[in-house]
């Protein structure tokens, strides 16, 4: 870590959080301990409070949207079928797109109807965490603390902030989400295929297992690959989401801290102002990109979970069903 040279100016002293982030961007991104709150003797992590807050906000917003999307009373006439709020309209468009254009072509109608609530919950939960992570709640709180002359952080990796931060930039959080996906994928596999079918699926399918003994080495190889694949797939989900969020936030904090670095280097007001202006424009552009990444990564996590679930469906049955559905709904063929 680069040692900080804080100028002897009142305003500059309030830039300590930014300077700290500039010299070590990871200190801004990693999950922080909240020493003021403990559960079972363990300090609560900032991501945990953020998750709970995001969950509550999500429930309130989606409950409101559900009321506006739900069919209204008969007295409203045909208007009862139309969303009665802007939020409802946005949620409705997203749900329809995900269900009709993304999930049904991959999973078929039956599996989509079965897992749609879970997959939508996953998408919106991750999206809310990603979006909250883009809003600098922690930085604002630390700034206020530093203005008051209070410590904005406690010991190593601690914070006085009580809310905020990018929860999905924590491998523990994305790992938790991936674990849920893993459990659901395997439960779906056992329910659809049975234990024998599940094992045959891992060994490359019934044809390969019941084939010539000469194929057994291949069966063993396929089993090893598929078995590791069981864990690699959710691990890849966790790492992909985590890495994207960390990379985006690192880029963002680096851009926003250029001005503070310039001030720390003693460039003077003009130089600091010019660099701050350029970095602010860059940070705004990166923020727009991050909004897109937040949506995209939430979608990718949910969509790949749907793909892995559909891979565990009974293949012949699903194919037949999918063909029937294609004829009825003019959707694309299943990905598997």
């Amino acid at each position: 870590m680069i040692p900080l040279a804080i100028p002897d100016m009142p305003v500059m002293s309030s830039m300590v959080p930014l300077l700290a982030s500039a010299t070590d961007p990871m200190s801004h991104i990693v999950d922080k301990k909240m020493h003021q709150w403990n559960i079972l003797g363990q300090p609560v992590m900032l991501s945990m409070v953020t998750m709970v807050t995001a969950a509550i906000v999500l429930l309130i917003l989606l409950r409101f949207a559900a009321k506006s999307i739900a069919t209204g009373p008969e007295s409203m006439g045909n208007r009862r079928f139309v969303s009665r709020s802007a939020l409802g309209g946005v949620i409705e468009v997203m749900v329809l797109y995900l269900r009709d254009e993304m999930l049904e072509p991959v999973m078929g109608v039956r599996l989509t109807r079965k897992y749609l609530p879970f997959l939508l919950s996953m998408f919106f939960f991750i999206l809310s965490l990603n979006i909250i992570g883009l809003i600098p709640f922690v930085e604002v709180q630390e700034f206020i603390h530093s203005l008051r002359g209070e410590p904005f952080s406690i010991a190593e990796n601690g914070t006085m902030a009580i809310f905020g931060g990018a929860a999905t930039a924590s491998i523990s959080v994305t790992g938790g989400m991936a674990f849920i996906s893993f459990v659901l994928i395997q439960v779906q596999g056992f329910r659809e295929l049975g234990v024998k079918g599940w094992l045959e699926h891992l060994c490359g399918g019934h044809e390969l297992v019941s084939g010539s003994p000469l194929l057994y080495p291949i069966v063993l190889l396929v089993f090893l690959v598929e078995f590791f694949g069981l864990f690699v797939k959710p691990a890849a989900l966790a790492i992909r989401l985590f890495a994207n969020m960390v990379a985006g936030h690192t880029l963002l904090i680096v851009f926003t801290s250029f001005g503070a670095l310039a001030a720390n280097a003693g460039l003077g007001w003009f130089g600091v102002g010019a660099i701050t202006a350029v970095s602010a424009v860059g940070a705004m552009l990166i923020t727009l990109l991050e909004v897109f990444v937040a949506l995209l990564q939430a979608f990718v996590f949910m969509f790949l979970t749907a793909v892995f679930i559909s891979l565990m469906a009974h293949e012949e049955h699903e194919h037949d069903e999918a063909h029937g559905e294609d004829a009825a709904h003019a959707h694309g063929a299943p990905a598997h």
Binding site: M26, I29, M45, V52, G175, F242
Partner: peptide, 23 residues
Amino acid sequence: ASANPLEFNLFPFITTIVVFATV
């Protein structure tokens, strides 16, 4: 957790599962 972003912490991991399941 420490400053290493790859450091795994069981507490948020379990909290994530519980919170998401509840949600």
